[in-house]
């Protein structure tokens, strides 16, 4: 058992628990507090937010609409109007700026289910995973758009686990539990990171939105990487790391440019060498390759040891 290393153990030894879980804690806080704001109305009668992730109205002033659902609605032949249009524009602008898939890692409630499945997978030592191409989601994204046009209904919303789960938590879940549980089982038994990382067309939509997003994770101190592989182990889209982290010899910049990166920041947490940080996509500078004195005594000491 000793051979199985927990990803992030080294970082925790160097940076402490909070230092090595900062972004994870922030993310869970974000996910749960967004959910709590939605639940405050129906549970406590305090109406800060009405609606659900498809459309919500905050404090009677801020409309937010899911542009993906609205796009499908438009493809059925219904011209979107009013608050929905304004809401979708706000959401599009926001996620374009911070990285589309921030929706996945900081907002979507299914992320917690998927993360739980992944965590359990590791705890139970389940290593078998069906190979699914990561492009499946884009095909599904296309299919849902075609279906909307062909059937005249927002067909995807009949089965979408994301909106079913969120709507269910707020309006009463009913049999939607089974759909969420199916996603959990799919991730646990069939494919590691199966739903969010390979299949979900909602995530694919937000990936497309992130193609030119300015806020990105950058491997700014990639020269310090000690190949511990912890970042790969925790990354829900691990294929996005290598081009930036190991691309120096090919002249690639240190910024993780793949739109599939969810900006979850977990790689920042688990890196004992503080290789990663949030930055802008245009910022190709690498931080000074020398041991960073700004990192404090402990970090410097580790760097020396390496």
């Amino acid at each position: 058992m000793a051979a199985v290393k927990r990803p992030g153990a080294e970082a925790q030894a160097v940076k402490g628990w909070l230092g090595s879980h900062r972004w994870l804690v922030a993310r869970r806080f974000s996910q749960l507090s967004i959910l709590a704001m939605f639940l405050l109305g129906p549970l406590a009668g305090v109406w800060i937010v009405k609606g659900n992730l498809n459309f919500s109205y905050t404090l009677g002033v801020l409309p937010l609409a899911d542009p993906y659902v609205l796009l499908q609605s438009a493809l059925t032949g219904h011209a979107p109007e009013g608050k929905a249009l304004v809401g979708a524009a706000i959401v599009l602008a926001f996620y374009f700026l911070v990285g589309g898939r921030v929706y996945c890692s900081w907002v979507c409630p299914v992320n917690m289910v998927a993360d739980l499945a992944h965590w359990l997978r590791r705890r139970l030592g389940i290593t078998k995973s069906v190979r699914i191409a990561r492009s499946v989601r884009y095909w599904l994204l296309g299919a849902t758009l075609v279906l909307a046009g062909a059937t005249g209904t927002i067909a995807w919303e009949l089965v979408n686990p994301v909106s079913m789960f969120h709507r269910g938590l707020i309006f009463g879940i009913g049999a939607a539990w089974s759909v969420v549980f199916a996603v959990f089982l799919f991730d646990l038994v069939f494919a590691d990171r199966g739903w969010c990382g390979h299949v979900c067309p909602v995530g694919a939509f937000y990936s497309v939105l992130a193609l030119r997003s300015p806020v990105r994770v950058t491997a700014a101190r990639r020269a310090h990487c000690n190949d511990c592989m912890d970042c790969y182990a925790v990354c829900p889209e691990m294929q996005v790391i290598k081009p930036a982290l190991k691309g120096a010899s090919r002249g690639a910049g240190p910024v993780i440019l793949s739109p599939n990166c969810t900006n979850c920041g977990r790689c920042i947490d688990v890196c004992s060498k503080t290789v990663f940080r949030f930055g802008l996509r245009y910022d190709d500078r690498e931080d000074a390759p020398s041991p960073a004195p700004a990192g404090g005594v402990a970090r410097a000491a580790i760097a020396d040891r390496a």
């Binding site: 009405k50 609606g51 659900n52 498809n54 459309f55 109205y57 609605s73 209904t153 079913m164 709507r167």
Partner: peptide, 23 residues
């Protein structure tokens, strides 16, 4: 095609008559 399943109508119905269909 037009309804985006947000439940705003359900919320604003003062008599709580409307429900959102579960699966």
């Amino acid at each position: 095609g037009a309804c985006i399943r947000c439940g705003m109508c359900v919320r604003d119905c003062p008599y709580r008559i409307l429900s959102l269909a579960r699966p």
